[in-house]
Amino acid sequence: MVRYQRWLQAGAFYFLVAITGSLLPGTYYVTLLNLIGLHIIIVLGLNLLMGYAGQISLGHAAFFGLGAYTSAILTTTYKVDPVLGLLAGLLLSGLVAVVVGIPALKLKGYYLAMATLGFGIIVAIAFQQMDWLTGGPSGFMGIPPFRLLGWSFKTPTTGFFFVWTVVGLILFLSLNIVDSRIGRALRAIHDSETAALAMGVDAQRLKLLIFVVSALYASLAGSLLAHTTNFIAPSSFGFMFSIKLVTMVVVGGMASIWGSLLGAAVLTILPELLAVFHDLEVVIFGLILMVVMIFLPRGLVRGLLDLWEFRQRKQQGR
């Protein structure tokens, strides 16, 4: 049975996607679900980096943006096929991740956080300032949708199927990575880098590898964003979005692949729900961030489980 577990999971996942995609009314929910899917892709990669390898990044919005802008510029300005645009984005993001990752991953803890933060802000400023290339602060319009085998993924619903097919694929890859020789070595580095080194794990190379992987995930999500929404603006790729991504990882639970789905979903839906409060939206969002982190520092799922167990124990004690 265990042999077929992955296939059953995959089957169930795509069945759910197909049902959801065909039943959803209107474009609002589809668009929101697309956004959740994109965020899940980034958060899965960031969780490999943060939850498994134990390395923080406060600049992942940059890779999201690099993917999005490479796709947008190549396909719109230079009329390249979207799939090639996506691949070019991956190539660029991978290269940038290597160049930044080699010096940055020598740093630890807060210093790594500062370096990735600085990197993220520089890239965000470049998106704003290189207006001859990126369209500047007002954004980039008219990005063509994906075309595959004669199919055009123009509407939000077709975009939905495209995005969530990729989400399923990335989920499959991530679950496999975690459950492998590489995933094990990453967790080992997280627990004790000294011991991992002594056991022959090339910690520096592996950290870089997973940094690049997480950058590729983010870049992929960026390209998908560009081709499904047809419009991108630099404000989507700034410092606050990087923080939001990290928050999604932590809220979902570090080193929890399934938690990443939850974290991404919750933090994507939350601002939508809060929109009814208008100006209060930001205040409430800030408050929720603080309260969740203060009272459930290990994330929503584990935090609630902890609370529940605590309660059980208390009741048994009486």
């Binding site: 923080i243 932590v250 930001v282 205040v283 969002f285 408050l287 961030l289």
Partner: peptide
């Protein structure tokens, strides 16, 4: 995240 959240709150 807590201090960023606090900043967002104060700014809001």
């Amino acid at each position: 995240i807590i201090t960023v959240g606090g900043g967002v709150l104060i700014k809001g």
